[in-house]
């Protein structure tokens, strides 16, 4: 009788960062690692696996691995590749089975997934061609405001009256922000305006799928308190953030890997 392997590896190769996770049968995370994807998806995946090996002190060659994310096909050591939609859904379900909608905002992609009671996606929407409504948008705005991406969200929360930033096109919004700076708006208000515009964009995407509560938010942008505040307001809901929200896709992939039959 085929048996389930005792460990699983998930590698999520995003356009900005690559994440890897090693779990055991109990679902306990034994090792995890995150690095910038850089120019080579393949190399960053290899780097991650090396690190898992060091952290866990195990021979990983026999452990099934599933790759996901934008560069999922570049991971040569993966057994199979599954899209980030399925992996995120399964990943967040393992952490909180109540979640019915997942909003993941990554570096260059954002997605909204409706999750069934079995943890599988039942519907999803992805952002369109451009970087509007992705982490990249906030990154560019942080640069313009001469602050770090880590501080941008905290800055936004200090706002009294958010500036009006109507565009979510990264190029247009950039010059709008420059215009607001020129008009003498304070940086906190501008930062709040930026987050509000982005939250509105993600809310539209969410309504296309149909928001069901409870809602979780993952991806690097989930760590940004300013974004969480404005998105929560837009959707009129509390947003649940899992531990290590960047790892949700990798975790889902690891669970899928462990469930593959040997």
């Amino acid at each position: 009788m085929p048996s389930q392997p005792s460990h699983g590896i998930g590698i999520d190769i995003g356009s900005t960062t690559t994440k890897a996770i090693l779990i055991n049968t109990e679902g306990t995370i034994i090792a995890k690692f995150l690095i910038a994807t850089g120019a080579s998806a393949q190399k960053s995946a290899e780097r991650c696996l090396d690190e898992l090996k060091v952290q866990s002190q195990q021979d990983l060659s026999k452990i099934p691995a599933i790759s996901t994310g934008y560069g999922r096909r570049q991971a040569l050591n993966a057994t199979k590749s599954v899209t980030e939609i399925t992996c995120h859904s399964i990943g967040v379900h393992s952490q909180n089975p109540e979640i019915r909608t997942l909003i993941d905002v990554g570096g260059q992609d954002s997605k909204v997934i409706r999750i069934g009671s079995d943890g599988r996606p039942t519907d999803f929407e992805l952002n369109d061609k451009c970087s509007a409504g992705t982490g990249r948008f906030l990154e560019v705005m942080a640069q313009v405001l001469e602050t770090s991406i880590e501080d941008l969200g905290t800055l936004a929360l200090q706002a009294k009256v958010p500036s009006i930033i109507s565009s979510t096109c990264t190029v247009f919004a950039e010059s709008e922000v420059i215009g607001r700076i020129g008009a003498g708006d304070n940086p906190a208000n501008i930062a709040a305006g930026v987050h509000k515009a982005m939250a509105a964009k993600i809310a539209t995407l969410s309504h296309r799928v149909g928001v069901r509560k409870p809602i979780a938010i993952t991806g690097g942008v989930a760590l940004n308190p300013g974004f969480r505040f404005y998105l929560g307001k837009q959707l009129d809901a509390d947003l649940w953030v899992p531990e290590g929200p960047q790892y949700t896709g990798a975790l889902g992939a690891a669970i899928l890997a462990m469930n593959t039959r040997e």
Binding site: S166, S167, C169, V171, F172, S175, E176, G179
Partner: peptide, 9 residues
């Protein structure tokens, strides 16, 4: 749709 308009430009 003012989102498509870049005033400064």
């Amino acid at each position: 749709d003012s989102q498509q308009y870049n005033e400064a430009q």
